[in-house]
């Protein structure tokens, strides 16, 4: 099967200079590949490096060694080596990310935050807002919240804003960091449906799913990050 996201011998070690150059190894030698329609679940105890791996896949963390490659506009790009504007273009068109916590921008309404990925793709403001409204409605976020900045929202509400923001652009590759962590059963079910829909349209998904039930419902494979822990 063709893949759209790969790593080869990917390793991550943090070096803490304030601690006299203390090296904190996270994982090493991860080679993975994910194809369209697949969902790879990262497993392992907390602190095992799942989120760090996901951040490496997004280009948010640098790779200490090895490589992250992604299929972008019919070409392979080395995300771990690409210059910033290329990484940003990959994120704009190809690679979506739902982080655990929403980074709130002062004064910007929920609707505009969710619409932003579409705006960056050149979709007109009205159309982008209309689609954002559909996503928020699908995620059961009350309409009275749409025109407010999400700074004061509850954790669950912010997470749904984050999910809508991460999925709205229908990116070919999606990274999901605990997308259901603070959601109730009804909304978890909605998110599971959305992930199924993303896979059905051919998206490749890599995710961390704390909840066993959710993981079993959405994942096609698992990768245990513990196996790649460096020297304990």
């Amino acid at each position: 099967m063709t893949s759209v996201l790969e790593t080869s011998e990917l390793s991550k070690t943090f070096t803490l200079h304030a601690r006299g150059g203390l090296a904190l190894p996270v994982f090493s030698g991860i080679s993975l590949s994910v194809g369209p329609g697949e969902c790879l679940a990262l497993t392992g105890h907390s602190g095992s490096g799942k989120s760090s791996l996901l951040r490496c896949l997004y280009g948010n963390y640098s790779a200490s060694s090895g490589e992250v490659r992604i299929r972008h506009q019919d070409q392979w790009i080395s995300l771990s080596a690409a210059p910033p504007r290329e990484v940003l273009d990959v994120r704009r068109r190809t690679l979506g990310y739902v982080s655990q916590f929403l980074r709130v921008i002062p004064r910007v309404s929920t609707l505009d935050i969710v619409a932003e990925p579409l705006r960056r793709l050149g979709v007109a403001a009205d159309e982008a807002r209309a689609q954002a409204a559909q996503w928020l409605a699908r995620l059961n976020l009350h309409e009275r919240l749409w025109h407010l900045p999400p700074a004061t929202f509850s954790g669950g509400e912010q997470q749904r804003v984050n999910i809508a923001h991460g999925l709205i652009a229908n990116h070919p590759v999606l990274l999901l960091d605990e997308p259901t962590a603070s959601l109730d059963a009804d909304n978890r079910r909605v998110v599971v449906e959305l992930i199924h829909a993303a896979r059905a349209r051919g998206a490749a998904v890599v995710g961390i799913f704390h909840d066993d039930e959710v993981r079993e419902a959405v994942a096609s494979r698992c990768l245990d990050v513990e196996h790649y822990r460096k020297s304990n």
Partner: peptide, 21 residues
């Protein structure tokens, strides 16, 4: 130097680490 969120979330140089922390 580099991508803004990369430099801020995974700073490499001792001085950047100090600045961010």
């Amino acid at each position: 130097q580099g991508l803004t969120d990369r430099v801020l979330d995974d700073p490499q140089h001792p001085y950047t680490q100090l600045l961010v922390s």
